[in-house]
Design a protein around this nucleic acid. Sequence first.
DNA 1: TTGTTAACGCGACAATATTGCAATAATATT
DNA 2: AATATTATTGCAATATTGTCGCGTTAACAA
Lengths: 126, 126
Amino acid sequence: MKRRKTQSQEEILTILKDSKSALNHDMLQAKLTKKVDRATIYRILNRFSDDGIVHKVIGDDGKQYFAFCLNCDEEKKQHTHNHFHFKCLKCGKMECLKHEIDVSLPKGYTSETFNGLISGYCSDCS
Amino acid sequence: MKRRKTQSQEEILTILKDSKSALNHDMLQAKLTKKVDRATIYRILNRFSDDGIVHKVIGDDGKQYFAFCLNCDEEKKQHTHNHFHFKCLKCGKMECLKHEIDVSLPKGYTSETFNGLISGYCSDCS
DNA sequence: TTGTTAACGCGACAATATTGCAATAATATT
DNA sequence: AATATTATTGCAATATTGTCGCGTTAACAA
């Protein structure tokens, strides 16, 4: 199933690239110049996520956030999700933290993916 | 507003205590001997969470999970959410990890709460 | 035993996300 | 350039998760 290039897709990807914070469906729809159907937006985003182009993160509000992650761009092939995400409690922006972490798990445990969400205040809001 | 002791409440708390993994609404309802309304279950769980008796965690499936956390029991007053949670990709159980972590944030950033979710395989499933 | 009101059950509702299907349009083929 | 193929879209319907209002029930106190 080959991918086709469409305008909606490209604009969404551009928005995600330009935005340093992770976006959910609402935020994306607000930024789009043309009206794109909700289902389409979700399909595009999930396609990106499946292709490893963007991260899908579940916020502490339970919503899906999508972020084009610079880290992952550098090491395209090795698309790992093992990093932190930060969400500002005041301005609400959510971003990837480059900091790599290692966690000591109990004996016999192995980790596949890691998803850390820190809430706090960013430099603009603290 | 004083709390009253009800059977549903006690059974739910017992289930959470006995279960070492975090449970969502579905899993809880399945374990309950008596039929308890969905809204009631959520109200009980959120009450527990407000009172600091259980943790509320958002899973990577976007659902709310609740866990009676041993760590927090020991240091009742200082009910922090700053610890990891682990979810097994095979058996699906979700549990609190005692390991405390410190993360180095970018300059000017301050953290309030921390929510780390690691997916992998537990000792029984690896 | 009686009164107060926290907790409950039921139904309705809100919000998020997915799916089926016909129509559209991007790409390949002739 | 015209046509065929099928990925993608829009729309509507649906699923899922969680909350809220309200009348009723029952836990606890007086």
